[in-house]
């Protein structure tokens, strides 16, 4: 008998479920319908308040947020942020169409911009996000050719572009957008929920930043919702 049959057999013997009790149907229905449980009230606000809550929650976990009126302001904002933090003017950008098409040369001539997955010596990355969740100030990133995962973890500084229209109330709302975007329940290799920069409390419970992932998480929040 294979280990698989042995284990499943042991589970079935322990559960003592009667045959024909509708268990198969129950399971199929739950997976197909994926019902929601209780969603906190704070995640069910009107959109404008969701944007405010998102920013508040993100800042509460040491994410910094810079609000911009338009995507075209991103190159200038990145350059200014790097200067303000005394960081090198160098940026690894995700191979994302919209980010690649920005006027980097014209708006941020000092910034050295390259594109691709993160290399071990890249200091700062710029990525898109798929959605952002107001209830805990969480980013949702979806891996793919346009959003390599290494950019989220290897560099010391991670900058992400978030459109206000991408902000939803709850995790469930984010998954709903994900399903509606044609993914159904097929996930890419990774979906990353990111809530603030890397941290550890492993030495005497003192919270310290940049344990392995980014020390800084900076958001450029584009107000694209009138």
């Amino acid at each position: 008998m294979s280990a698989r049959d042995q284990i499943l057999g042991a589970v079935r013997r322990s559960l003592k479920r009667a045959a024909g009790d509708g268990a198969e149907e129950t399971v199929s229905a739950r997976l197909a319908e994926h019902p929601r449980g209780p969603v906190p009230a704070r995640a069910q606000l009107p959109h404008k308040e969701q944007v405010a809550l998102f920013q508040e929650q993100a800042e509460a976990v040491q994410t910094t947020v810079d609000r911009l009126a338009d995507l075209s302001e991103v190159p200038k904002a990145v350059s200014a942020y790097l200067s303000s933090q005394n960081l090198p003017q160098s940026l690894r950008v995700a191979p994302d169409g919209r980010l690649g098409a920005l006027p980097w040369q014209a708006e941020a001539p000092l910034l050295e911009v390259s594109t691709g997955p993160a290399r071990s010596d890249d200091a700062t990355s710029l990525t898109p996000v798929f959605a952002a969740v107001a209830e805990t100030g969480t980013l949702m990133l979806r891996s793919g050719p346009e959003s390599p995962v290494t950019l989220n973890f290897l560099p010391e500084t991670h900058i992400a572009v978030v459109f206000a229209s991408q902000i939803v109330g709850s995790y469930e709302d984010a998954w709903q957008r994900f399903r509606e975007a044609g993914n159904d329940s097929r996930l890419p290799r990774t979906v990353n929920f990111i809530t603030g920069p890397s941290r550890t409390g492993d030495i005497e419970q003192t919270i310290l930043f940049g344990a392995h992932g980014p020390k800084r998480l900076h958001l450029l929040l584009i107000d694209d919702v009138p």
Partner: peptide, 9 residues
Amino acid sequence: EFTAYTTFS
């Protein structure tokens, strides 16, 4: 409220 990273692989 939430940890820094929740990763679905």
